[in-house]
């Protein structure tokens, strides 16, 4: 998996310490008014919109597996890389790349208004 180099991001916004998210758990963070659910997965850190597309359930509190998180309220399952609901219903949330450097986590943000930039669609990760 390679991260896209062509993101229009011009800056990174610090989310917090990597160690504050235990492996396979999530925590919420707010960046320029946008709520994110940040997860620690087997393949590093990722973030998606914090609120479930169904009824706004707190996705950071969900159960995390290899590639998805299950909403704690009614079990919609969401792909952590695409934000797509993959089971239990339909819909999607925005998906974001998370960068880890020296134990800190960052999300790429717009240089204009500081809001997090959605990641470009990934090709199927192998």
């Amino acid at each position: 998996m390679t991260a896209s180099g062509s993101t229009a991001a011009t800056a990174l916004h610090r989310l917090g310490r990597a160690e504050d998210i235990p492996r396979f758990e999530g925590r919420t963070a707010t960046v320029a008014g946008v709520s994110l659910a940040v997860f620690s997965t087997e393949h590093g850190f990722v973030a998606i919109g914090a609120a479930c597309p169904h009824q706004g359930g707190p996705l950071a509190d969900g159960i995390v597996s290899e590639r998805c998180v299950t909403c704690p309220l009614h079990n919609r399952r969401i792909d952590l890389h695409t934000g797509e609901v993959v089971a239990g219903g339909e819909g999607r949330v925005p998906a974001y790349e998370v960068v880890e450097r020296d134990g800190d986590l960052y999300v790429p943000v717009s240089g204009v208004d500081g809001t997090p930039l959605e990641r470009e669609p990934l090709e199927a990760a192998t």
Partner: peptide, 20 residues
């Protein structure tokens, strides 16, 4: 909400997913 760091381009090229 401080904006930190060098332009994303440079950081992202470091393939964070592998780093992590």
């Amino acid at each position: 909400a401080a904006l930190v760091g060098p332009p994303a381009e440079a950081v992202l090229a470091g393939a964070p997913a592998e780093d992590a």
